[in-house]
Structures are given as C-alpha cells and as structure tokens.
C-alpha cells in the first residue's frame, strides 16, 4: 500500500516539476533554511520567556511571534513536501527523517499543552516548573528537528 503510494508520488507531475530545472531544488532549500531561521528565532523568544531568562510580561510579542512561527512552519512544511515529492527515495525508510517527523509531532503536542495550561502566563512575571519544562522541551525538540533534518542526507539509502 505505502509502496504504491510512494511510487505514485515519485512519478507524479509535481515530482517531475521539482527536478525539472537545476535551480528549483537549491531555491527550495534556501527558502526552507531562511524559514527555519524565522521559526527558530520566533520560538526562541517565547521559550526563553517561559524558561525565565527574562520575566517581563510580553503577551503581545508572544501573540505576534506565534503567528509568525506558524507562517514559517507552513513555508517549511510546503517546501518539505516538495523535497519529498522530488526525491522520495531519499526520505523513505530514512531513520533521520522518521525521527525528525516524530520530534515535530511531539513539539506540536508540547505547543498544545502550552495553549491549554499556560496561555496567560506571559501576561505576568510568573515562571513555573511547568513553563520551564515546556520551554526546555520546545528548545530541545526544535534543535533535534534541525539536527535530524541535516542528517537526512547522511542516512539516505
């Protein structure tokens, strides 16, 4: 089933387009990396506040940066899907890619926990054990996502 799906992806018009010009892949990679920096910078500000590196109430900043990080993530996801279409064999059964996707999923759950339990914390000067955990986990997960992303090439079969 998944074998057929991967074959269909690899033979699709979108896959043909991604490899149709030597300029497309490097351009997509450049966009992916720029967007990654926007995502990392936005999340770092929020995470450092949750950890207590600074304690100022920054609710408006956090609201803006979460929107920006979602936009950056959407760009990363789109370019990532195009990479998968363009070179499916590189990603299928690749442990670095599988761990990267798992870390992104856990980071999503961590963000949901923040929305559920700590949405008003950034209106105050408060730092709790729970906020420190959310901030540290987020930093570790996204750093892991970057590391695994870079490792995909070295684990490709």
């Amino acid at each position: 089933m998944s074998e057929k799906l991967f074959q269909w992806i690899a033979n699709s018009p979108l896959a043909d387009w991604v490899v149709s010009s030597p300029y497309i892949w490097p351009t997509l990679e450049s966009i992916h990396f720029v967007s990654l920096c926007v995502l990392m910078g936005s999340l770092l500000v929020v995470d450092l506040r949750l950890i207590g590196v600074f304690r100022e109430p920054i609710a408006r900043t956090v609201a803006f940066l979460i929107r920006l990080s979602l936009l950056a993530f959407a760009v990363n996801l789109s370019t990532g899907v195009l990479f998968f279409f363009g070179y499916t064999a590189k990603y299928v059964n690749n442990p670095a890619f599988e761990i990267k996707l798992t870390l992104i999923a856990i980071a999503g759950l961590n963000a949901l926990y923040y929305r559920w339990r700590l949405p008003n914390l950034v209106n105050t000067r408060e730092v709790t054990r729970s906020s420190i955990a959310v901030g540290c986990i987020s930093l570790a997960l996204w750093s892991g996502v970057i590391v695994c992303g870079r490792m995909i090439t070295f684990y490709a079969r």
Partner: peptide
Amino acid sequence: LHSVGMGAAVGLSMA
C-alpha cells in the same frame, strides 16, 4: 550543530 547555531543567531537577530 552549525545549523542549530545558525537558527539561533539569525532568528534572534531577526526578532
């Protein structure tokens, strides 16, 4: 690790 440092330096400069 070079990419992790890049994300922090460039992203925070943008912020």
